[in-house]
Design a protein around this nucleic acid. Structure first.
Length: 482
RNA sequence: GGGGCCGUUGUCUAGCUUGGUAGGAUGCCAGCCUCGGGCGCUGGAGGUCGCCGGUUCGAAUCCGGCCGGCCCCA
């Protein structure tokens, strides 16, 4: 085994996590830095992963009665400012457009940090009757937020790809159901496809979306012990419908303000899956979202190149016909060993090696990306074997990630212990909380951890607040976060 | 918010302290070789030394500003 080349990942995940992460993003060709601070360019391989995630969600959104629309990127200041809390929350990170060519624009225009205000100014025009409700629209677009803090590809960037859903309902109950249904769609997608377990629950008042009545969240835990918010679903109550005058005439012949929700997930999910599943050789993709599920590498000497490649192509075609995303790497300019390393770095879940020996014996060599195990199978059982192994890999990744999450949920019995967990061990510190913002803020100040989520699952609540010792009202998950 | 490090060819870098011809590896191109874990050989192309300004006979090197990247701390 030779020394790792610069083309490969040279940082170790458990020693130098940040460096490792950056190398995976750049070297697996997911993304590159753009010329402007905080912005990245999504490369085809990274975009293909985003397309997988998008397609899965888009299907679910449509199945549950949502339609897609498109909004412009510019929002006039007056509109953005119409809901006070919302404006105050976003204004520090808004990019403003003040000129058109050489001419000053009268009213400055915001590059959307999120589209509630713009969408709702439109919704107000479209909704007049209970018959217009519910209105359920989703937007696949980008949002722009000038990040002052250190940026990290996919995790924190000044522009990010996301979807933002916005719905309008006649009743509070219906809006609240929507909030929960969407959060559950997120949870299923993250668990079943990205193979990551997560904790669902509420954000605290301090951490909720500015302008929302309350925010529900799905929080993940990364390999370095830091938490990552992977998606949020907000109940907006009537906080926006009132300033934007989204009103409808009910069956009762009276006018009512509508109830609203908004929700979103972003390409952060790509960052999350890198951090959770990746290893020292690079990316590890869950089969269900991998752009290439199986890569076939022909191994040949010059004289039998044609024959081996022909066999490899047949394998590729057979897999493709069975609906398995496959790629035969027939490049002559690289050796098979080079290809092995490259595809491992790119996280392709399953590799099939095929050489003259295998052809002779009527077998194929399968190499799993997650466990690196090699095994031989009968050529005739290609599709069954590949499907079975892809299923196993998908399952194994979720199991490993679940195990990791379990290990990273700790139950401190004292504030000192919580502090030690946050500062040394990392992970979620699950603790009682009196519900007062004062304690939440003190803990944040003193340890750097905030309340990531008040889990829906509230069993085994400690009796006392971990900070002040007063009776606890909730069990909360404290952690440092990205 | 505070502190530190860095920017030289596509990539990684040497040179910078002590100013004077930008050197290597890898990648790329051509030709040969041939592949069971990042093969080997020969030749070749590729550089506004991040940008702007200053000092100097002369700046990758010294000084200032800006742009960009990374890390640590709160």
């Amino acid at each position: 085994m030779s020394q790792p080349k610069e083309t490969g990942i040279t940082a170790q995940k458990d020693k130098d996590f940040s460096e490792w992460y950056t190398q995976v993003v750049l070297k697996a060709a997911l993304a590159d830095y753009a010329p402007v601070k905080g912005f990245i360019v999504l490369r085809p391989y990274g975009y293909a992963i985003w397309e997988s995630i998008r397609d899965i969600l888009d299907k679910r959104f449509k199945e549950t009665g949502h339609q897609n629309g498109f909004l412009p990127v510019l929002i006039p200041e007056s509109l953005l400012a119409r809901e006070e809390d919302h404006f105050a929350g976003f204004t520090p990170e808004v990019f403003w457009v003040t000129k058109a060519g050489d001419n000053e624009i009268g009213e400055r225009l915001a590059l959307r940090p999120t589209s509630e205000t713009l969408a709702y100014s439109m919704f107000a025009k479209w909704i007049t009757s209970y018959r217009d409700l519910p209105l359920k629209i989703n937007f696949w677009n980008t949002a722009l937020r000038a990040e002052i803090k250190a940026t990290k590809p996919f995790i924190r960037t000044s522009e990010f790809l996301w979807q933002e859903g916005h719905t309008v309902h006649a009743t509070k109950e219906e809006a609240e159901q929507e909030v929960m249904m969407i959060l559950d769609i997120y949870r299923q997608m993250i668990e079943d496809y990205i193979a990551m377990p997560a904790i669902t629950g509420f954000k605290t008042e301090k951490e909720k979306f500015v302008g929302a009545e309350y925010t529900t969240t799905i929080e993940g835990m990364m390999a370095d012990g830091k938490a990552l918010q992977m998606g949020t679903s907000h109940h907006l109550g009537q906080n926006f419908s009132k300033p934007f005058e989204i009103k409808y005439l009910g069956k009762d012949t009276h006018e009512h303000f509508a109830w609203q929700t908004s929700w979103g997930v972003s390409w952060r999910l790509i960052g999350a899956l890198i951090m959770v599943h990746g290893d020292d050789k690079g990316l590890v993709l869950p089969p269900k979202i991998a752009p290439v599920q199986v890569v076939i590498v022909p191994i040949f000497k010059d004289k039998d190149a044609q024959q081996v490649k022909a066999h490899a192509s047949e394998v590729e075609m057979e897999l493709k016909r069975a609906g398995i995303r496959s790629h035969m790497d027939g490049r002559d300019e690289y050796t098979s060993g080079w290809k092995f390393n490259e595809w491992e770095m790119k996280g392709v879940p399953l590799r099939i090696n095929i050489g003259p020996r295998d052809i002779e014996k009527g077998q194929l060599e399968f190499v799993r990306r997650d466990t690196k195990e090699k095994s031989f199978f009968d050529r005739k059982k290609l599709v069954d074997t590949a499907s079975m192994m892809l299923d196993q890999i998908q399952k194994n990744l979720l199991e490993k990630a679940t195990q990791m999450l379990r290990e990273k949920i700790l139950n401190p019995v004292s504030y000192d212990e919580l502090r030690s967990i946050v500062e040394n061990t990392g992970g979620f510190a699950r603790a009682g909380w009196c519900g007062r913002q004062e304690c939440e803020e003190k803990i944040k100040e003193e340890t750097g951890a905030d309340i990531r989520v008040i889990p829906f699952e509230q069993s085994e609540m400690p009796a006392k607040c971990i900070y002040c010792g007063q009776p606890s009202k909730k069990v909360a998950m404290f952690a440092r976060a990205y």
